[in-house]
Deep mutational scan, measured.
Amino acid sequence: VTLFVASYDYEARTEDDLSFHKGEKFQILNSSEGDWWEARSLTTGETGYIPSNYVAPV
Rank of each mutant, 00 (worst) to 15 (best):
residue 3 L to A: 07
residue 32 S to A: 11
residue 34 G to I: 10
residue 11 E to T: 12
residue 49 Y to M: 14
residue 14 T to Q: 10
residue 12 A to S: 10
residue 49 Y to F: 12
residue 4 F to Q: 04
residue 4 F to N: 04
residue 41 S to F: 02
residue 23 G to F: 05
residue 19 S to I: 01
residue 8 Y to I: 09
residue 30 N to F: 06
residue 25 K to G: 05
residue 21 H to F: 12
residue 43 T to I: 09
residue 44 T to P: 01
residue 48 G to L: 03
residue 57 P to S: 07
residue 27 Q to C: 13
residue 5 V to N: 02
residue 29 L to Q: 05
residue 18 L to K: 01
residue 30 N to G: 09
residue 50 I to F: 01
residue 26 F to N: 00
residue 20 F to A: 02
residue 32 S to M: 12
residue 31 S to P: 09
residue 9 D to A: 07
residue 54 Y to V: 06
residue 49 Y to E: 02
residue 20 F to G: 00
residue 23 G to H: 04
residue 27 Q to K: 07
residue 30 N to L: 06
residue 24 E to T: 07
residue 26 F to S: 00
residue 18 L to G: 01
residue 30 N to K: 08
residue 2 T to E: 13
residue 56 A to Y: 14
residue 22 K to W: 05
residue 42 L to Q: 06
residue 16 D to I: 14
residue 6 A to C: 07
residue 52 S to R: 12
residue 40 R to Y: 09
residue 9 D to P: 07
residue 29 L to T: 06
residue 19 S to R: 04
residue 16 D to L: 14
residue 57 P to T: 06
residue 20 F to S: 00
residue 47 T to A: 07
residue 21 H to I: 12
residue 37 W to E: 01
residue 36 W to S: 06
residue 47 T to L: 07
residue 6 A to Q: 01
residue 38 E to F: 15
residue 58 V to I: 13
residue 10 Y to I: 02
residue 45 G to C: 10
residue 21 H to W: 07
residue 33 E to S: 13
residue 52 S to K: 14
residue 34 G to P: 14
residue 44 T to K: 03
residue 32 S to G: 10
residue 41 S to K: 12
residue 53 N to F: 10
residue 55 V to M: 09
residue 15 E to M: 11
residue 13 R to E: 11
residue 55 V to C: 04
residue 39 A to V: 13
residue 31 S to V: 11
residue 27 Q to P: 02
residue 48 G to H: 03
residue 42 L to K: 03
residue 7 S to N: 14
residue 1 V to S: 13
residue 18 L to W: 03
residue 30 N to P: 04
residue 18 L to T: 02
residue 42 L to F: 06
residue 1 V to H: 13
residue 2 T to Q: 13
residue 24 E to Y: 04
residue 33 E to I: 11
residue 17 D to F: 15
residue 56 A to V: 15
residue 12 A to I: 02
residue 27 Q to A: 09
residue 13 R to S: 10
residue 34 G to W: 09
residue 45 G to M: 07
residue 58 V to N: 06
residue 58 V to R: 03
residue 30 N to A: 08
residue 49 Y to K: 14
residue 23 G to C: 05
residue 39 A to C: 04
residue 16 D to E: 12
residue 22 K to I: 09
residue 44 T to L: 00
residue 51 P to M: 06
